[in-house]
Amino acid sequence: MVTLATTLPAIGQAAELNVLTWEGYADKSFVEPFEKASGCKVNATYVGSNDDFAPKLAAGGGVYDIITPSIDTIGLMRQAGYIAPIDTAKLKDFGGIYKDFANGPDVSVDGKIWAVPLVWGSISLMYRPDKVSGTPDSIGILFDPAYKGRISMWDDKSAIYWTARYLGYDNIYDLSDEQLEKVKEKLIEQKPLIRKYWATAGELTELFANQEVWVSNTWTGLQSKDINALKKGFVVKEFSPKEKAEGWMDSMQLVKDSPNEDCAYKFMNYMLSPAGQCGIIKVTGYFPTVPGAVSQCLTPEEQKDRKVNDVDFVKTLKMWQMPARLDKYLEVWNAVKAAP
């Protein structure tokens, strides 16, 4: 059994740690043991999109200590001056992280580490087999008029990535003006089919639970688990489209001038330890970045499902990157949402 007793020494005086993160990343099941052993109280604020990090940091006035953006956003946080480099000498298990991630783009820059890989996974498609005919295998299900009013999509610029792949574009992170215009047209054409753009994992779960939605993209492993656990008289299934699924990796970043740096490093250490890695993947269904940390908490079948020691799975995905023209992508996505 994984215990915290040897992970962190208790400290006498309580301190605060303010984390800007995703749903499931500060679940009480693993945060409360950390708080008890470290003396650091965790206050979590949740985001629904990677596009939320920059505005919240810009308006926060030093409110946050740790953020957990995805691989296509960590570089922007560094370029914007929001974060500080990581002292890996203070992280006991940093060497256990998959080398592909620890040395990855925007994680390691100019000899410095700017992010601590936390979890990774893919973005798949989810559907109700009792409502969808056949066995879907394509992104095209998101654009199928047969499911008008029963389709949802994540309210995130990655809608551009999905649509670009559906249109046959391979350079999804560096689309030309002409390609972006085609993507925008397709997304606007899709809007009458959309029941709602979902902003959080919980919102999509509710849309399915209330039987408002039958089809959506999804954070692989998380929402399907939550929906099926509700036992509403139906199940949902996931699939990876023939146009390839997107891949992502979320990392912990230390906010520049954090007043709670001591607790921040304690938390990062904890989240790389067996207690932290096992805790977060049990809650979310995502994949660990420290494969050696989960050998005792996952069965062999679960390890296979969570791609433990199978980082080559990354090669089958379209891993997220920061778009070459981020402002243009955000402009296009906002224009789609603003369209009637």
Rank of each mutant, 00 (worst) to 15 (best):
Ser152Lys: 11
Asp93Gln: 14
Gly81Tyr: 08
Ile172Met: 05
Met126Cys: 06
Ser108Tyr: 05
Ile97Pro: 05
Asp87Thr: 06
Trp120Ala: 02
Phe143Thr: 00
Gly121Tyr: 01
Trp120Arg: 09
Asp100Met: 13
Ile160Lys: 03
Phe94Thr: 15
Val109Cys: 05
Leu118Pro: 00
Phe94Ala: 02
Gly81Phe: 02
Pro117Asp: 12
Asn103Asp: 13
Ser133Phe: 10
Ser108Pro: 04
Trp154Pro: 06
Gly81Cys: 02
Asp174Glu: 08
Gly140Val: 09
Ile172Arg: 07
Asn171Asp: 14
Pro136Leu: 01
Ala89Phe: 11
Gly134Val: 14
Met126Val: 14
Val116Arg: 00
Trp154Lys: 06
Trp154Tyr: 12
Thr163Cys: 03
Met153Phe: 11
Lys157Ile: 11
Gly134Ala: 06
Ser158His: 14
Pro129Thr: 07
Gly96Leu: 08
Leu118Lys: 09
Tyr147Gly: 02
Glu178Arg: 10
Asp87Phe: 05
Ser133Leu: 14
Ile86Phe: 09
Arg165Trp: 02
Val107Cys: 03
Val116Tyr: 00
Gly104Leu: 02
Trp162Asn: 01
Gly104Glu: 02
Pro85Thr: 00
Met153Glu: 02
Arg150Tyr: 03
Asp93Pro: 03
Arg128Asn: 10
Val119Phe: 00
Thr163Ala: 05
Tyr161Leu: 06
Asp156Met: 11
Ile83Leu: 09
Val132Phe: 01
Tyr127Leu: 11
Glu178Cys: 06
Ala115Met: 15
Phe101Leu: 10
Glu178Tyr: 15
Asp155Phe: 12
Ile141Asp: 07
Ile151Arg: 03
Ala102Tyr: 00
Val107Phe: 05
Phe143Tyr: 04
Gly81His: 02
Lys112Asp: 08
Trp154Cys: 04
Thr88Arg: 08
Val116Ala: 01
Asp144Leu: 09
Ala159Gly: 11
Trp114Arg: 04
Gly81Asp: 11
Ile160Pro: 01
Arg128Lys: 09
Tyr173Arg: 04
Ile86Asp: 03
Ala89Asp: 15
Ile160Gln: 04
Pro85Trp: 06
Arg165Thr: 07
Leu167Arg: 01
Leu142Pro: 12
Pro85Cys: 07
Ile141Phe: 06
Asn171Ala: 07
Tyr98Met: 04
Phe94Val: 08
Gly96Tyr: 08
Ser176Ala: 10
Val107Ala: 03
Gly104Asn: 01
Leu142Lys: 01
Gly168His: 01
Pro117Tyr: 05
